[in-house]
Design a binder for these strands. Sequence first.
DNA 1: TGACTATGACTGACCAGTCAGTCATAATTG
DNA 2: CAATTATGACTGACTGGTCAGTCATAGTCA
Lengths: 233, 233
Amino acid sequence: MTKKPINISAPPDIRSTAKGRALAGGGDPVAAASNRAARAAERRAAIVEAALEEFIARGFAATRLDDIAKRAGVAKGTIYLHFKDKESMFEELVRIVIVPVVEKLTALPPPTGSVRDLVEAFASNFLKEVANTRRGDLVRLIVAEGPRFPAVADFYYREVVSRGIAGMRALIELGIARGEIHQKNLARFPQILVAPAMIAVIWQSLFARHAPLDAQEMLRVHLDLIFGERRTT
Amino acid sequence: MTKKPINISAPPDIRSTAKGRALAGGGDPVAAASNRAARAAERRAAIVEAALEEFIARGFAATRLDDIAKRAGVAKGTIYLHFKDKESMFEELVRIVIVPVVEKLTALPPPTGSVRDLVEAFASNFLKEVANTRRGDLVRLIVAEGPRFPAVADFYYREVVSRGIAGMRALIELGIARGEIHQKNLARFPQILVAPAMIAVIWQSLFARHAPLDAQEMLRVHLDLIFGERRTT
DNA sequence: TGACTATGACTGACCAGTCAGTCATAATTG
DNA sequence: CAATTATGACTGACTGGTCAGTCATAGTCA
């Protein structure tokens, strides 16, 4: 009873009309879902989107939930209907954003053509999908916050890094077997294969304004190093 | 007058005795300097050391100046005798730590021997000096905080990255001229040369406990890729 | 002793998380 | 089908705690 909501003040007109969607300049002008569940899902998505943006821009500690709420067009309390607290929100966020990317990248084309083409297609896809994208910043964010969020680092290692490394190693071994790759030791360090892609992601995110980097072209040069130079362009 | 420091309270006994050095288990047990300037320099160094540790462990926003002060064996107010505020302390910190590393790495051995040996010596030095060191974590910290500290990102680009890239490019061009490197395009992306080293630094800092990485060996394999495989070990 | 340096209690701003209350929608009833 | 009741998603003012930065006081050196 300490409350006493002054009950006046709020002009009871604004939110009464079309509260849900029109308000807050919500992200997509999709026709508002009419049932509760759909509305809730919509809001959750808005929160995830907003939180991602804020966390990327400010890092975990400096991000204010008030800002996330404002950006999502939602009250702060609503966030707590969807997430336990700031920390677990961050951890869930990483999963939510990364899982679909992994799925997309895992759905590889069938292993036809040369190993080089395979690798190039994959890496090119990765660059298109990640570098110069919100996802690229997420990678930087994980590098940044990883040590303070072992759960995040573990998840990322398990779901992305170890899988990626294993996949690259298989590809390298195939390349060696087929005689496309001559450096046998490369199979011991598949990291070398993806290093330029990672560098590209970080570079864009830190130094793009000083010196933009043509990641696709750099990738091609790097692959020339591994598979031997290609004849013409 | 809103203040009013109660003025009593503090038992004036603890810190009065051997305050300066013995306290706080300070880093090095060097004999305490006797003159003021030296003492001040010592304290400043202790603050820098402590701040570096804390910023690396927690990131900028989550680091408390109280913790830095405690770790440095100094009162919080003392920090403000040496640095304007938290932000500029962070920026200065980066400079203070990086400058000597750059200087050390810039003092290259005279350009004798093969380009490969030159590159290998340099990179090996870099790994020894940076990876598995506090410095390596600093690199991660810069990647993490760079976007929120344009001054830091700029400084790092200017002092480290652009110089490094230029140096590597010169080395690559020398290698091409001497016939040691066949991939001419490599000169367009010196990043490729250092990518594995960077990856190694980040890897150690994030995934060492999952899967430690032999950076030196990876480097060697990578150089084999660029310069051609070496005969025996 | 006087000038300089260090201290740490204190302040005010800020922010994660809470919860009493609201209201659109869904369910039930006549 | 309209009226009534129940539900629970949503809100945002509020609390308790934290922390950067200050400054009156105490200590130290030359």
